[in-house]
């Protein structure tokens, strides 16, 4: 049964990548909101925020990257939902293929699409003055964390795409995820927040991920932040994967 897993996944991945190549608007709309936030924060709010850091562009980029991912995975749910509704999902499931490759192709497509979006956002940040002294290992570490974060949220998107009853339901789940970085250390130091908000901000996963990426970009030791960030990402990944598979099994007998 699984002898064709890699071949089938590759064929289906090629199919969804073709979708992206033919509708580059999905990449553009994914990056528009994070870029707009970046412009707003850097050129409007940034001047009034005292972060203690030399460059606010550098300070806010990690949070913007996470917003990019949160907005990108909405399209993963969208593509999955369209496949479910159009009947092509059932066509694939009734064929002699490795069945799970249908889901994995969507997951890998999500990864590719998000990496392209992230590259676009980083390029815009460079134009806006973002600079990093990080070496190759630190950049690789940042890429690794972003991939892990994307995979974790992608499996959340798979749950939404599989179980949604409407298009709005399939994509709407991402809005809270997009705003989660606002309630973290991404744009404002948490020390400036009132008690309960600060307590939430300091203990939610985005803060650890943001601090780890910020430290890596700045070439500073990242200490325990990166460990906790990894634990959060892997934890979300495992739980979301388990729920996604449960939803999937309920959908296809």
């Amino acid at each position: 049964m699984n002898t064709h897993f890699f071949g089938d996944t590759a064929v289906l991945l090629g199919r969804s990548l073709r979708h992206i190549a033919r509708s580059p608007d999905t990449i553009i709309t994914t990056t528009i909101m994070p870029i707009a936030f970046m412009l707003l924060f850097v050129y409007v709010f940034g001047g009034a925020i005292n972060t203690g850091a030399a460059s606010y562009v550098n300070y806010q980029l990690p949070g913007i990257l996470l917003i990019t991912i949160a907005s990108g995975i909405a399209y993963t749910a969208f593509r999955l939902f369209v496949d479910m509704k159009s009947g092509i999902f059932e066509r694939f499931q009734s064929m002699p293929i490795a069945r799970s490759s249908v889901l994995w192709a969507h997951v890998l497509t999500s990864l590719v699409a998000n990496l392209i979006s992230l590259a676009v956002v980083v390029l815009v940040a460079l134009l806006m003055g973002f600079r990093s002294g990080a070496g190759v290992p630190a950049w690789l570490a940042v890429t690794g964390i972003l991939i892990l974060f994307t995979l974790a949220l992608t499996w959340v998107a798979v749950i939404a795409g599989l179980s949604a009853k409407s298009m709005d339901g399939a994509t709407g789940f991402s809005y809270p995820l997009i705003f989660l970085p606002m309630l973290s250390s991404a744009f404002v130091p948490t020390a400036s927040m009132p008690g309960p908000v600060r307590a939430f901000a300091e203990h939610q996963p985005v803060t650890y991920v943001v601090n780890a990426i910020r430290g890596l970009f700045a070439g500073q030791p990242v200490g325990s932040d990166i460990g906790i960030a990894l634990v959060w990402c892997i934890g979300i990944l495992i739980v979301a994967y388990a729920f996604a598979m449960r939803t999937y099994r309920r959908k296809v007998a």
Partner: peptide
Amino acid sequence: RETISLTGQFAAVDEMLSGWENLVLVARLR
């Protein structure tokens, strides 16, 4: 699944691909 083929209630075709690409896709998956 090796024995059957399903044509569902709604034409299960990929809108973003050409007709030719749809056929190639299924042939590859088979």
